[in-house]
Measured scan of single mutants.
Amino acid sequence: NKFNKELQWATWEILNLPNLNEEQVKAFIDSLRDDPSQSANLLAEAKKLNDAQA
Protein backbone atom coordinates (compact mmCIF):
# COMPACT_ATOMS: atom_id res chain seq x y z
CA ASN A 1 0.00 0.00 0.00
CA LYS A 2 0.91 3.66 -0.27
CA PHE A 3 1.99 4.13 3.34
CA ASN A 4 4.18 1.03 3.22
CA LYS A 5 6.08 2.31 0.17
CA GLU A 6 6.44 5.77 1.71
CA LEU A 7 7.60 4.23 4.98
CA GLN A 8 10.23 2.09 3.25
CA TRP A 9 11.48 5.04 1.19
CA ALA A 10 11.62 7.39 4.18
CA THR A 11 13.41 4.77 6.28
CA TRP A 12 16.02 4.22 3.56
CA GLU A 13 16.50 7.97 3.08
CA ILE A 14 16.92 8.61 6.81
CA LEU A 15 19.39 5.74 7.19
CA ASN A 16 21.50 7.33 4.45
CA LEU A 17 21.62 10.91 5.76
CA PRO A 18 25.32 11.41 6.54
CA ASN A 19 25.11 14.07 9.26
CA LEU A 20 22.65 12.44 11.67
CA ASN A 21 24.02 10.55 14.63
CA GLU A 22 22.83 7.11 15.66
CA GLU A 23 20.41 8.45 18.30
CA GLN A 24 18.81 10.85 15.83
CA VAL A 25 18.40 8.14 13.20
CA LYS A 26 16.83 5.80 15.78
CA ALA A 27 14.42 8.51 16.95
CA PHE A 28 13.27 9.25 13.39
CA ILE A 29 12.87 5.55 12.57
CA ASP A 30 10.90 4.97 15.79
CA SER A 31 8.64 7.91 14.91
CA LEU A 32 8.11 6.49 11.42
CA ARG A 33 7.04 3.15 12.89
CA ASP A 34 4.71 4.87 15.37
CA ASP A 35 2.94 6.87 12.65
CA PRO A 36 3.73 5.83 9.06
CA SER A 37 1.28 8.43 7.73
CA GLN A 38 3.77 11.10 8.82
CA SER A 39 6.65 9.67 6.77
CA ALA A 40 6.86 12.67 4.41
CA ASN A 41 6.89 15.14 7.30
CA LEU A 42 9.42 13.13 9.28
CA LEU A 43 11.68 12.78 6.27
CA ALA A 44 11.54 16.55 5.72
CA GLU A 45 12.47 17.13 9.37
CA ALA A 46 15.32 14.63 9.16
CA LYS A 47 16.69 16.29 6.02
CA LYS A 48 16.44 19.72 7.66
CA LEU A 49 18.37 18.48 10.70
CA ASN A 50 20.91 16.75 8.46
CA ASP A 51 21.52 20.01 6.57
CA ALA A 52 21.79 22.00 9.80
CA GLN A 53 24.47 19.61 11.08
CA ALA A 54 26.50 19.61 7.87
Rank of each mutant, 00 (worst) to 15 (best):
A54D: 09
L20Y: 00
N4Q: 15
K2E: 15
N19L: 04
F3G: 15
L7S: 03
A46M: 02
L17S: 02
N50H: 03
K48E: 08
L20Q: 00
S37H: 06
Q8H: 04
S37Q: 08
R33P: 02
N1P: 15
L43I: 07
D30M: 05
D30I: 10
Q24A: 03
L15G: 08
A10I: 13
L7I: 09
W9Y: 13
N21M: 12
E6W: 14
L42E: 01
A10G: 03
E6P: 03
I29V: 13
V25G: 03
N50G: 03
D35L: 06
R33T: 14
L7P: 02
F28W: 03
A27W: 10
F3L: 14
K47R: 13
P36T: 05
L42Q: 05
L43A: 06
N41Q: 10
A54P: 10
P36D: 02
E22Q: 12
F3V: 15
A44P: 02
I29Q: 03
D30Y: 05
K26I: 10
Q53R: 05
I14F: 03
Q38M: 13
A46R: 00
R33I: 14
I14E: 02
D51F: 09
D35F: 08
L32M: 12
D35T: 08
F28E: 00
D35G: 03
D35A: 09
A44Y: 07
K47E: 04
Q24I: 03
E13M: 14
A10W: 05
A52D: 08
D35S: 10
D51V: 07
T11E: 05
N4D: 15
E13T: 08
T11M: 12
S39T: 08
K5Q: 12
D35Q: 07
S37E: 04
A54M: 09
Q8Y: 09
P36F: 11
F3E: 15
L15F: 04
D51L: 14
N19P: 00
L15H: 06
E6R: 02
A44E: 12
R33Y: 15
T11W: 07
L20R: 00
E6H: 07
S37V: 04
F28T: 01
I14P: 02
S31P: 01
T11N: 04
F28N: 00
E6F: 14
E23H: 10
Q38I: 06
Q8E: 15
K48H: 09
A27I: 12
S37M: 08
S31T: 09
K26T: 13
N50Q: 02
A40W: 06
N1F: 00
A54S: 09
A44N: 07
L32G: 01
D34S: 11
W12G: 14
S31A: 13
T11H: 04
K47S: 05
N50W: 01
E23T: 12
E22N: 13
D51I: 06
L43G: 01
A44H: 15
N21K: 09
L15I: 06
L20N: 00
V25M: 08
E23K: 13
Q8R: 05
L43K: 02
V25Y: 05
P36N: 03
N19Q: 04
N50F: 01
Q38A: 07
